[in-house]
Design a protein around this nucleic acid. Sequence first.
RNA 1: GGCUCCAUGGUCAAGCGGUUAAGACGUCGCCCUCUCAAGGCGAAAUCAGGGGUUCGAUUCCCCUUGGAGCUGCCA
Length: 484
Amino acid sequence: MIRTRFAPSPTGYLHLGGLRTALYTYLFAKKNNGKFILRIEDTDQEREVEGAVELIYKSLRQAGLQYDEGPDVGGDFGPYIQTQRKDSYLPYAMQLVESGAAYPCFCTKEELSARREKAEAEAPGQWKYDKHCLNLPKEEALRRMESGESFVIRQNIPTSGTASFEDALYGHVEAPCDTLDDNVLIKADGLPTYNFANVIDDHLMGITHEMRGTEYLSSTPTTNLLYEAFGWETPVYIHLSPVMKDASRKLSKRYGDPSFEDLLAQGYVRDAIINFIALLGWSPGDEREFFTLPELVEAFDLKGLSKAPAIFNTEKLVWFNHEYISRMPIEEYIAMATPWFDKALEGKHMDYAFLATLMHTRTEVFDRVPDMVRFLGELPEYEIDIYSHKKMKTDPEISLKALKLARPALEALTDFSEDAVKECLMALAAENEMKNGQIMWPVRIAISGLASTPGGATEIAYLLGQDECLKRIDIGIGKLENLS
RNA sequence: GGCUCCAUGGUCAAGCGGUUAAGACGUCGCCCUCUCAAGGCGAAAUCAGGGGUUCGAUUCCCCUUGGAGCUGCCA
């Protein structure tokens, strides 16, 4: 039975790189009929952010990545929050101390930094812990530990040879032991470090495949030594390349890059985000590009994972979002768009269902909707030069003529439906031997005040209603008459 | 500095010794059209550089260059 885990630290919101790691971890488990587990790694109490754990639950749920075991859903291998497993780590560390794979260290931070400073002066960048406490007599060490003296437990890395592991993606990775440091396993506060907690918990929770970011690639030979020291079977390692903002920066909150929640709030739809994220660093191997979550489960394969970092390209996300929005049923669109319509048209009566038909295929991201429809609520200021359009063969003079023709014709209409307006305006063009565009363009400009709009003159006229249309046409006529 | 990893168009990427080097986004052009979108058609654009190995390298090896990560009592 395959078991994978997503193990975030509660240090803030779920960023997109984290979301992608969670996604792949979920997909791999589900593809293989395995279990997907959530574990909270909160051993760094200082960095913990209030409410971050709940945010992780919420984001994962919103993303549709339901975990089979986790803090808020239970499971047979709990607790799933590391601080709640606090007491289970030290005995394992002591087991290592017993076998010589680890040792207690009483060096204070002050002593350490003094020695480090001195060493740096002689050989810059060469400092490693000097194994100062390694040779303390065992009895003395135990006595000092029991006396309540502050201590940490360090991993005893061999001074020669190499440490290595096999990665499903990167293959054989090895590092010379003499470049590795005697890492702290148990901190002075009694809590384990990431590297140690991870080994213990993954083993205890029966994790078979360890998927995580490449930032752990170079520390894995070291931690793999721990598995060997315990005599435990190692999981399959699968390191995932990072999601970048540009060629040299990772996506990060510090530079204002959006989180999953931010994207949702901006009006990106969940499935579009997931679809896009899935394809950032993974390829199905064929030319499909639209996937629902179940389809991703079906298609997912480790072989499609990319080793190189992928740059988060917002334009493509926007494209995906547009596609997903265009494909959603109109009812769903209306429901999603209404709050955004309200934002720009508050208080105005308007046929939202009709407006939705215009906006449906024109919506890329919902937060762009208000600016697109605002002109319906209030006629924007505009320059008369937008009445001129070469291809439509219009200029201010023709426009004035068109508006003067359209004004009474529209006023005479008793049915102001879109079809009726269209019929009326088309007839007008024909009667006066004008091109359709020579009527339509000026009318649209007059009633919208914009060079480009969602929908044409007749659709906008219907939405605005007869009175508002005539008012706006009068304004247009006024502007054009003032010209001459 | 040391160690580890990575490298196909602007971006995501297919390719896994012989291809006209897919596809998508974006860009540009044309068509359609009452504007804008949408849609249709088309175009430009990639194997970082240098050595090998081989009959033949985008593909395998080495070096250089560039980038990333680690080098914390952070994860």
